[in-house]
Computed example of a mutant assay.
Amino acid sequence: MIRIIPAFSFAASLVALAPLGAAAQELTVRVSGIAEARGEIGCALHASGASFPTGQAGARIVWIKATGSEVRCRFADVGAGSYAVAISHDLNGNRRTDTNFLGMPTEAWGVSNNVRPSLRAPRFEEARFETDGSAQTISVRIAK
């Protein structure tokens, strides 16, 4: 009986720890097309279309210095599900995508799936991608 208890305790601890590894995934967003190595790249991870692509409510946001033609934004502990990413290259330090009087962006931007409608903002459904509970890397190219 003494041998069974330690074996059972060890097995139970492995079962208890197993979900922790599966629930914690890292999503990496490889941002390319950065024309100027100045300012910051803002990466916003949206779990719904409520504020996508320019709103911040409910989004997880990461800011990275624009140090070259490519940067990587990392989001820890992203669970399995549907998401969309919006990227902005903030050149003037206001941490938003500036627009002209017509509402068209004047700073480089991009979204997941590299969707670029010409006369409207991208929709969440167009930029949506799925995660399956494992680490994942997606690529987004930004442009004006």
Rank of each mutant, 00 (worst) to 15 (best):
A7V: 14
A12M: 14
S13F: 10
V15D: 07
A16V: 07
L17N: 05
A18T: 04
L20C: 13
T28Q: 13
R30W: 00
V31C: 11
V31F: 08
G33E: 12
E40P: 00
G42T: 03
C43H: 01
C43Y: 05
C43S: 01
C43A: 05
A44E: 01
S48C: 06
S48F: 12
A50F: 11
T54N: 03
T54V: 01
A57E: 12
A59I: 10
I64Y: 15
A66C: 08
S69N: 08
R72N: 14
F75C: 02
A76E: 12
D77F: 01
V78A: 05
A80L: 05
G81R: 05
Y83V: 10
V85P: 01
I87T: 01
I87S: 00
H89R: 05
H89G: 04
D90R: 05
D90G: 07
N92S: 07
R96K: 12
T97P: 01
D98Q: 06
D98I: 02
D98N: 11
N100Y: 11
F101K: 09
L102R: 10
G103K: 04
M104E: 03
T106R: 14
E107W: 15
E107F: 14
E107A: 12
G110S: 03
N114A: 02
R116M: 13
R116N: 14
A121Q: 10
P122L: 08
P122K: 11
R123C: 03
E126T: 04
A127F: 05
